[in-house]
């Protein structure tokens, strides 16, 4: 109950503040739009539809590092869009292979652009099942860089460095769980 009361108080204070902003007639766009919708598309309340790529990742204990990174890179709303997306989703164990210092650095605000670049390299616009992929095929990822698929004996690898260990269909695309973090080619 306390929680509910708290949120009501919070709500009323938001109302109060938004009014003040309007009264000032100089409220910035961000404050106004935040009042209209603080969360964007990812905050749409819907427990009935199939889960999108973000919700699946959030619900996976093996992807907490990825989810934290997506949040830090402001990609959560974009990936809640209609897509369709193919997300190559490194597991926590995959992220553990990256030196901790590197990872910590990427999570800093000043390195957001670099983090976005890396994460966008894990996303393709289009829903690709592994059976659609061919050996040697390249796909141009959201960040602009290409990945190369190798397919041998039913095993699908990305850039010869990460193996697809599971594929999970989502409402707005598909997630391929991979055991390595993909690094964008440097000379982009």
């Amino acid at each position: 109950m306390k929680k509910i009361l708290g949120s009501i108080l919070l709500l009323s204070s938001i109302f109060f503040f938004s009014c003040n902003d309007a009264a000032k007639e100089s409220g910035t766009t961000t404050t106004e739009t935040e009042t209209i919708n603080p969360g964007g598309q990812s905050s749409v309340k819907d427990d009935e539809s199939a889960k999108d790529v973000v919700k699946i990742a959030v619900g996976s204990a093996d992807h907490s590092t990825l989810v934290a990174a997506l949040k830090q890179a402001d990609l959560v709303n974009s990936l809640s869009n209609a897509g369709p997306f193919t997300v190559f989703a490194p597991t926590n164990a995959a992220f553990d292979k990256v030196p901790k210092e590197t990872l910590d650095n990427l999570m800093k605000d000043e390195n957001k652009a670099q983090l976005q670049d890396i994460l966008q390299y894990h996303v393709y616009v289009g829903s690709l099942k592994t059976e659609m992929m061919e050996d040697g095929q390249t796909f141009n990822q959201v960040n602009g860089g290409n990945i190369t698929i190798t397919k041998k004996d039913g095993k699908v690898m990305v850039n010869n460095s990460a193996t697809v260990i599971a594929s999970i269909p989502a409402s707005n695309g598909i997630i391929h769980v991979i055991d390595g973090v993909l690094l964008p080619p440097a000379n982009k």
Binding site: I8, L11, S12, F15, F16, S18, C19, N20, A22, A23, E32, T33, T35, I36
Partner: peptide, 20 residues
């Protein structure tokens, strides 16, 4: 809360109802 709301934004225009 509503009272506060009303007081602070008097019947100006249709303004804050839409948020924008």
């Amino acid at each position: 809360a509503c009272l506060l709301f009303l007081q602070s934004c008097k019947p100006k225009t249709a303004q804050s109802a839409a948020g924008g």
